[in-house]
Computed example of a mutant assay.
Amino acid sequence: MTTILHLDASGRHTGSHSRALTQMVIDHLDSPNVEIIRRDLAEPKPELVDEAWIFSNFTPEADRTDGQKAHLAASDELVAELQKADIIVLGVPIYNFSVPAAFKAWIDLVARAGVTFQYTETGPQGLLQDKRAIVVHTSGGTPVGSDIDYASDYTRHVLGFLGITDVQTVAADGLMGDESAGIAKAKAQIEALKLDARTEEPV
Rank of each mutant, 00 (worst) to 15 (best):
Y150S: 08
V110C: 03
T116N: 07
I94M: 13
R156D: 15
Q118A: 11
Q129G: 12
L159R: 01
T138W: 02
E121R: 10
P143H: 08
L162P: 00
I107R: 13
V136S: 06
L159I: 02
V135A: 12
D153T: 14
E121W: 06
V135N: 05
Y119V: 02
Q129P: 15
K131T: 03
D149K: 04
D147F: 15
Q168S: 05
N96F: 00
H137M: 14
T155N: 01
L127A: 10
A151I: 03
D149P: 07
V167F: 04
R112H: 06
F103C: 00
V115W: 14
P124V: 06
I148S: 07
I164Y: 05
T120N: 15
P93Y: 00
T122H: 12
V144H: 08
Y95K: 00
L128Y: 13
S152C: 01
V110T: 05
I134A: 09
V158G: 11
F103W: 11
I94N: 12
R132M: 09
T155A: 07
A133H: 04
A105V: 04
R132C: 08
Y95P: 11
T142P: 06
S139C: 07
T142F: 03
W106F: 14
T116Q: 02
H137S: 10
T116S: 13
R156W: 13
Q125G: 03
L128S: 05
I164Q: 01
G145F: 07
S146F: 03
N96R: 08
P143K: 04
N96G: 09
T116G: 08
Q129A: 13
F161T: 13
K104W: 03
F97T: 15
I107D: 06
A102L: 15
V135H: 10
I134D: 13
F97S: 09
E121V: 12
G123V: 08
Q168E: 01
F97W: 15
P124Q: 04
D166M: 09
S146L: 02
